[in-house]
Amino acid sequence: MLGRMEQQAHFITLSTPDLGAARAFYRDGLGWTPLLDVPGEIIFFQIAPGLVLGLFDTAKFVADLQGRPNDGRLGGLTLSQNVPTPTDVDATVKRAVEAGGRLVKSPQTAAFGGYHGHVADPNGVVWEICHNPGWRVDETGRVHLEPIADTP
């Protein structure tokens, strides 16, 4: 089909009003290693095969869009990471808060039957740190979401 866009993304770029605080949260709080760090402009983290998260200084983000200041605002967005155990949820949320994140929701049993907590990065981006035993990725990279027993 001509002109059809593949069902994939390679970059997720977030407008970042305080790049230094974001760097500390992701590097020190989440323990991530930057793929590329351009001080005062942008920092990239590879977050999956072929997928990069970019944190772009808001003023430069808006200029790149040739937009208006409101074009740099974020809203209605969560990012999520599945971790192996509920204990990992607790530890990751704690470390993220210690690195400048804001606790949004303390770790607890989730409505879907797993265990999760929510923490906002210094830009207000909310991360769900989750243990979902029904989630897995097979050897081809395909995601499988299985219902968890006793989930309403």
Rank of each mutant, 00 (worst) to 15 (best):
G113N: 00
Q8P: 01
E98W: 07
R102N: 15
D121I: 08
F44N: 02
F25R: 00
P17F: 09
A149G: 04
G20I: 00
E41F: 14
V62D: 07
G100N: 11
E41A: 14
T85W: 14
P49M: 06
V83D: 05
V52A: 11
Y115D: 09
P84V: 04
P133I: 06
A149R: 00
L77V: 15
P86V: 04
P49V: 01
G101F: 06
F61W: 11
L30R: 05
A149Y: 02
T92G: 08
V143C: 13
L79I: 13
L14E: 01
V104K: 03
T78L: 01
L30N: 04
F56I: 00
T85D: 08
R95P: 00
P17G: 10
H144L: 09
A111G: 09
D18E: 12
M5P: 06
I47V: 10
V119I: 04
D138V: 07
P122I: 06
N132C: 07
A111I: 02
A9R: 05
T85L: 12
T13K: 04
P107Q: 00
E128K: 04
P122H: 08
P84S: 11
F56R: 00
A91R: 02
E139W: 10
T92Q: 13
F44S: 02
G3V: 12
E6W: 09
L79E: 13
